[in-house]
Structures are given as C-alpha cells and as structure tokens.
Amino acid sequence: MTHKKAMLIDISLCVGCNACQAGCKGENGLPPDEEKYLSLTAYTALTKYNDLYVRRMCQHCDVPTCVSVCPVGALTKSAAGPVSYDGEKCIGCRYCLQACPFHVPKYEWSSTKPSIRKCKFCPTRIAKGLPTACAEACPTGATIFGDRDELLAEAARRIQAEPGKYITRIYGEQDVGGTSMLYLSPVPFEQLGFDPRLGKTPMPMLTMSALSKVPNVLSVGGVLLAGIWWITNRRTEVQAHESALKQGKAHAQEDEA
C-alpha cells in the first residue's frame, strides 16, 4: 500500500529565505527570478505577515474541489497525494480556478491553447522515494516531507513539547476534509490569510447534496409526468367519448321520431 505523502510547514521556523521557491523553479524548469505571489512561473510563494512567512501552494487536498468540479476529469488525485493535471483532457472551462478554495490554479490567459499551472507535488521525485524539491531546499526544516501520518504525529509532538510556541491546531489535518500541506503556526491562522470560512467539510460535499438528487428527479419525475399525462389524456378521451354518446343518442331519438 502506498503511504499518503504530505509536507509539514512550521511557520515559526521559516526565515523567508525563499529557497523553497528557488528549488521548485529549478525542479520545474521555471525562470529563476524571485516572485511574491503564485503565478504561472511560481508554483510556491511566500507571503509575509509582520515577521512571519507563510508558504502558499497547492494544498493537494484529500477530497480536492478542483478534481470534483472538472467536467472531463483532467484533474486527478493519486493515492500518494499529488493532485495532477492533464492538459490534453482540459477543455478550458476554468471551473477549477473558480472553485479552488485556496485560489491556487493559474491560467495561461495569453495562450491560444491554454492550460492551468500549479504545484505538482513533485510526483516523479516521490515515485523515486525522494523528498519534494522545496522540502529538500529548505535550510531550516520549516518544510519537511514525509508520510502524512508520521508528519501529523510529529506536529502534535511539537505542539505538546512547546505549548506556548504554537497554537493548538494543525491546519490541514481536517480543513476542507484534510490536505497534504500541514501547517503549524504561532498565531491564529486567520491572521495569516487562511480563510476562516472554510470548514472541515470537503467542498465537493456541497455539490454532491444537489447532484445526488439527479437520479431521483429523473425516476420520480418521469413517473410523475407520465402519470399526469395519462390522467389528463384519459380525461380528454372520456369527454370526447361522452359527447359522442350524447350525439349518438340524439341521432337515435331523431330516428325514432
């Protein structure tokens, strides 16, 4: 069985050196200039909040919103963790951009054959048993790579060891159904640009509550409509028959007379 991989990002250890971005750019063959925001050429970026740095990148959710909304299944979630993208399938509807709760996918707007771009979670490195490029590049251990279970245990251990240093929450453990990126923070996550409105329910559940009714609408609706048709049709037939009978009687009376 494949172990689910993850990364633990300890915000208190990050010094903002941007080595993760440089490592990522090297691995993905992207232009090496430093970037402050996620873009087509930056799959990870650091956002500064006072003296804290927060890494932004694809969270590789356990129940990914993007995977659920893609009409053609161009986005897929693998057992090892990565959410990967197949540009050959993509029709360019951009529902993933609209739906991603973390605003991650970026679109090649200037291309006439556009694709989306985002962090790939180094699937080829993972397959070879190597850590992700950003984790390897991190000099302080703020980003470490490993099995998700082990990293969760490690995070819990750190919180327990230094209760004053961290708030007692591992972001990503359960948020939007759990993610592959786990964060530890010395301050509440709401102060670091994490959206407080995202709950623990995976976003795709919101859609499934509506989509799961489709078979019911089809079957119950079909029977109902056919039934109404039959009843109203019968009424018309009976009316026609009765008026024909009346006419028949009238004719018969005329004949008798």
């Binding site: 659920s68 893609c70 009409p71 053609v72 161009a74 399938k89 029709i91 859609t207 989509l211």
Partner: peptide, 16 residues
C-alpha cells in the same frame, strides 16, 4: 476540446 465531456465523464462535476 469542446467534445471531451462526451467521452470523458466526471459524475461529480456539475459542469459535466
């Protein structure tokens, strides 16, 4: 690629 939804299904997608 407009015809892709015909052959590539994702039953979880409203768009599909």
């Amino acid at each position: 690629h407009f015809w892709h939804p015909l052959v590539m299904w994702n039953p979880h997608s409203v768009m599909c």
